[in-house]
Simulated assay, not measured.
Amino acid sequence: MSANGGPLPGQARPDISPRHGFTESHTENMLRDSLLIAAALAGGPAALIMQDESGTWYRDSCGLTTEQAASLEPALSRGSGFDPEARGHGAQGLQLAAALPLVDDCRRALGTLCVLSQGPPSLSEDQREALRLVAEHVQTIVTMDRQRSESRATLRAPAAASFVPGLVHELGSFIFGISASLDALEARYTGLEDVGRYAANIRKGLDRMGTFIVELKEYGYPQRLSWTVLDLEPLLREAVERNAPLAAKQGIDLQFHSEGALPRIQADGEGLQAALIRLIDLILQQEQPGGRVVLNLAAAHQGNRGLIAGNLDFPGTKMKQVDPARIFEPFYYRMSGLGRLTLPGARRIFESHGGSLTAGPGPEGGMRISFMLPSE
């Protein structure tokens, strides 16, 4: 029904090109039902528009013509719901009554569910709350379809939900058993020089394996232990300070620069900071004395969406032959010592926050690792 009690206009289902579609045929039926519910709750036309970096890939509407539904897209900004300046324009005479941003379980933007009206919007609080629940239902439908697509159509990654925790458990049990046997051996043969020398080497290897298990566990699936709204600058500044002693030991100039006021982010501060500390530590250990490592931080925008953009610039002397497109693959970059999962683990942490971590050429022939995190 429309806002004035009459029937809705023709309920066109426009053809979309490109239109990715969904794994299950009934997924679109469920989305269609959700769209009809949203239109009934608002008493006016409704549209569901899915967008990614390449543009709109799925669009459906209730009470709108093909042209009206298409005309909505310029007013929508991926990740922020709508452009406030375009709110009054709506879809060819209609006005946006509500635009609800849709995100996946990693808080990456999926698209927008919007409802419209022929006159000034006048949704009650109960209507807005009901539409919010419909939007959450749409997010669940899309997320479940993507999970089914992963399990049926793609190869299972090493970080599969059961594989990595199981591997961590088995390796941990093995280390515990060897360590206990070593304790008993040292107690039995106390004072023998050869035993002490060999035992020290074995313990060194066990410690290295223990550190690797920690990396493996965190690479498997990043845990959101304390998901809060926070300021990123103090967190990064502390990460740099924690690495200052290592930089001094290596003879490397470690700097931190932040430009202007930064938006707040929603994050697991402990996990994000740990990933940054390990990332800086890894870079410092690969650099020659006399080098310089600089962490830069600044605010940015993507449409109407606030972002924090940063980069780590360093000479990258030992990474000259490394393919930047593959550097985040597990075990691709082979450095001495530990840290072979540091780069892929850090990327998983940033992606779990809805951000990104990439590598490429840096200034003066060096290397740059760039990251992005969305604001709250």
Rank of each mutant, 00 (worst) to 15 (best):
L282V: 12
R152Y: 09
T27P: 04
L94P: 00
F256V: 06
S352K: 06
E215K: 03
L282A: 11
S77W: 04
A261W: 08
L232K: 00
D207K: 11
L373M: 10
D183K: 09
L155M: 13
A298S: 13
L48C: 02
L131N: 00
A40R: 10
T317K: 11
S34A: 15
G310P: 02
C114T: 06
G43Y: 04
L230S: 08
S173F: 10
F82Q: 06
T140E: 13
I349Y: 02
L96C: 06
L282T: 11
A199R: 00
L373V: 15
G271M: 15
L76I: 02
E125L: 14
S54G: 08
P18S: 07
P120N: 15
Q68A: 12
G205A: 12
L216E: 00
K318R: 11
Q250T: 09
F256C: 10
S181V: 15
A239R: 00
R237K: 12
T66A: 15
P222F: 01
T342M: 09
P74F: 09
G79Q: 02
A135M: 05
N311S: 13
P158N: 14
A130E: 07
G290W: 05
P14S: 08
F174N: 03
M372S: 12
C114F: 05
L357F: 04
S356P: 05
L295C: 08
S2M: 11
T228R: 11
F174P: 00
R264N: 08
L35F: 02
L295W: 02
L41S: 01
L167V: 08
P158C: 12
V138M: 09
G177V: 12
Q288N: 13
N311C: 14
A135H: 01
A86M: 14
A3V: 08
D15H: 10
S61K: 10
A184M: 12
M1C: 07
